[in-house]
Design a binder for these strands. Structure first.
Ligand SMILES: [Mn+2]
Ligand SMILES: [Mn+2]
Length: 486
DNA sequence: GCATCCC
DNA sequence: GGGATGCAACGCACA
DNA sequence: TGTGCG
């Protein structure tokens, strides 16, 4: 359905029963739009009864999907409405679905439009049509959420009506939630870094991918950066995909040291940051053909490789993208035709490791990983080191928490189970190595048991695990942790 | 954006 | 009917 | 407790 909106907020629609209004107040337009769509006569003075206006409905994929508040301005400054957004997604549905189909999705909801404060929603709303699919997935913590899975245009428009502007799918499909089929190269230019540098780095990414047997599918992010998606066989874990992305980032940085950075800490970055951590489990990226919450409703646009050197991201918007889709199709249309192997990048990772480059920092909210370097910005670490050199006490005892419980006997039982699991370490513990603390919670008290492994040789120290039991003094019976496998 | 509570 | 309200992620590491 | 980071 063709539609043209100019940059002054005027709208004209050639087809469609909708008339042509110029420079009209959004509130009044809402009434008019509804009046026309509902084929009823409305007293134009009746602006008070706006709330009675009927919802719009779009017919897609054999269903009628309701769009509530269709006339609500979602992009102030351009005047594009929620209905404009829904129609955009209906027009490019085949492209947008290629990026999200079968994947659990995190809802980023802009219920007050692009200029409002968005919120994230992982758990599918309780109230939903039976034709909206969901899947239960586990976070790294073991907690779980039932997330929405979109496979057709009706399901897509249903989440658009919830206020989703950009779409944020996980890199896995619902039928295998532990093995990503997409490695995502996320190029984030730092403050003041221009589009030219983004393009140059993107082309280096292509070289490195190519030399490791992989095909990348570039797209503008719709914001200031670029994304290069890589379809891979579902054979590697999240951690492995992340390590492959880290290896790629470091190699790109090595080849373009003035333009690119693989460093997590902002104070160490320069130029374009290659965000390897976006491949960690439970992280998502805005998908192809997503509209972004920018003032001009920019779109994350798939590109041919020969367009990368010359394209301008501002050319792709909610208004211009449908024509490109009709005329040229989806530049990523072939992304599902072949799945690549991570072997090459993982070999690169091993060679980097041999050269002294191991794992790199993880984002906040993730448990400390084996072999992860200290997760602290170097500048803050230096301050501490200086304090220590001045005579401060070195505080690091090898303490691990083994049990947390509301009642002391439960915690002690957990300690006994730990001793049974690690008899060797338990045998080396000396007096005062087991610390039993009474902790003050919100309104009650609970017990924590920690073990000091100072008398256990370093290579014989058990890793810290999730405490058993793992009482959460903050929790009020929220979503529960998934039971550990037997 | 929507369910729910309440006037 | 409609206004007010609550709710809608991940949740650790480190100083 | 504040700050790290998307
Ligand atoms: Mn990005
Ligand atoms: Mn990023």
């Amino acid at each position: 359905m063709p539609q043209h909106l100019d940059d002054r907020g005027r709208r004209e629609r050639a087809h469609d029963a909708e008339r042509r209004f110029s420079r009209i107040e959004p509130l009044l337009e809402r009434v008019l739009t509804h009046a026309v769509r509902g084929s009823r006569i409305v007293d134009l003075r009746d602006t008070v009864s706006v709330s009675k206006a009927r919802d719009a409905a779009l017919a897609v994929a054999g269903r009628e999907v309701a769009i509530t508040n269709p006339g609500k301005v979602f992009f102030p400054g351009t005047g594009y409405t929620k209905l404009d957004l829904a129609r955009y997604y209906a027009a490019v549905a085949d492209g947008a679905l290629r990026g999200i189909s079968g994947r659990p999705i995190v809802l980023k909801r802009y219920v007050d439009g692009a200029a409002g404060e968005p919120f994230f929603q992982k758990r599918a709303p309780e109230q939903r049509p039976e034709w909206v699919e969901t899947v239960e997935l586990a976070f790294p913590s073991g907690r779980t959420a039932r997330e929405i899975v979109v496979r057709d245009a009706a399901q897509l428009l249903w989440i658009v009506n919830l206020g989703c502007i950009d779409l944020n799918p996980h890199p896995v499909r619902a039928d295998d939630l532990e093995h990503p089929d997409e490695l995502r190269v996320d190029l984030d230019p730092g403050p003041g870094v221009g589009w030219d540098d983004v393009r140059r780095v993107t082309l280096v990414v292509r070289d490195v991918l190519d030399e490791h047997g992989l095909r990348g599918w570039p797209k503008t992010s719709g914001s200031r950066g670029m994304h290069v998606n890589v379809r891979i066989a579902r054979r590697w874990s999240f951690d492995q995909v992340r390590r492959a992305a880290l290896a790629l980032a470091r190699e790109v940085e090595r080849r373009a040291p003035d333009l690119a950075s693989s460093k997590w800490w902002k104070e160490e970055r320069h130029g374009v940051f290659l965000d390897y951590n976006q491949n960690a489990k439970d992280r998502t990226v805005a998908s192809a053909w997503s509209v972004r919450a920018t003032h001009d409703a920019r779109v994350s646009m798939p590109l041919e490789w020969d367009e990368v050197a010359s394209c301008s991201p501002e050319d792709f918007t909610l208004v211009t993208a449908p024509a490109r889709f009709r005329e040229r199709g989806d530049a990523s249309a072939g992304i599902d035709d072949a799945a690549g192997s991570l072997d090459g990048l993982l070999e690169l990772s091993r060679s980097q490791e041999a050269a002294g480059l191991g794992d790199a920092p993880w984002p906040p909210h993730y448990r400390k990983q084996q072999d992860e370097p200290p997760r602290v910005a170097p500048s803050r670490q230096k301050i501490a080191r200086t304090a220590t050199e001045r005579g401060g006490r070195r505080s690091t005892q090898p303490l691990i928490t083994v049990a947390k419980a509301a009642h002391k006997p439960d915690a002690l039982a957990g300690l006994e189970r730990w001793k049974t699991r690690y008899p060797d370490a338990a045998g080396r513990l000396q007096e005062d190595d087991v610390l039993i603390d009474s902790m003050r919670g919100r309104s009650t008290t609970w017990t924590r048991i920690r073990i000091n492994l100072r008398h256990v040789p370093e290579d014989a120290r058990p890793r810290e695990e999730t405490p058993d039991p793992d009482y959460d003094p903050w929790s009020d019976a929220g979503p529960r942790r998934r039971a550990a496998p037997p």
